[in-house]
Amino acid sequence: MGARTFLVHGLVAGLLAGIAAFVVAYTVGEPQIDKAIALEEAASAPASDGHDHTHADSDESAGHSHGDEAAVSRTAQSTVGLATGTLAVGVVLGGFTGLLAALGLGRLGSLRPAASTALLAAIGAVSFSIVPFLKYPATPPAVGSGETIDSRTAVYFGFVAVSVAGAVAAIALARWGARRWSGVPGVLAGLGAYALVVVVAAVAFPKIDELGDFPAGILWDFRVSSLLTLLAMWAVIGAVLVALVDRTWRRHSDVRARRELAASL
């Protein structure tokens, strides 16, 4: 069981996760995006002169164009474009989670490979996607000003970085605590440390509220669909990776048992 095997497992899991995320995003998410864009276009219709508004000259909430005059058509954005995004993100998250599972192998207490892999995938989902979503939930098109996109992007990824670093520190603390005391207090210390880091960061990081009078119903539906997309992605990464790692582990221990039997004869 080497790094290469884990990377391949992770990439396969990520590819399937990207497909699952696309299916969820397309079926539940796209209807909400369409509604939001329709609102956006209705709002900016009087000002529209039919020209393509780009980032440089847009003075309104729209960061970029969406209509028929856009560089990429809505049909492409909602199908192949969406699939490109979910597949690319799925593959890199899956591949990296595979490598993390390789690092976690035999290092998380007495957990067997399938269990340590599942734990790392869950920590990845919580620290990279779910906790950041709670602080900075996804927003549909028509929400957010083009002028603040740079600072919003920086603040979002800053928060993700703090959350992920907090998770890494929490794992280190949990391992240290487990060696020093025992498993349960060690894990509790790790959980407590992560919660503390995230709560302090959530209070310290700026609040972003550019919702204006965007309809609450569409906003809620959009956010649920976004969360479902992220959960589908991580669930498939975790499930497929655990299944593949467990299969490899069984083969590995079979071979080993047979070799030991042969040596003992």
Partner: peptide, 20 residues
């Protein structure tokens, strides 16, 4: 050159990344 930006636009919104 906002081709990639526009191309993956919907994925960015639904995966929770900032946009707009």
């Amino acid at each position: 050159g906002t081709a990639i930006h526009e191309w993956v636009h919907d994925g960015r919104h639904l995966l929770g990344f900032p946009c707009h």
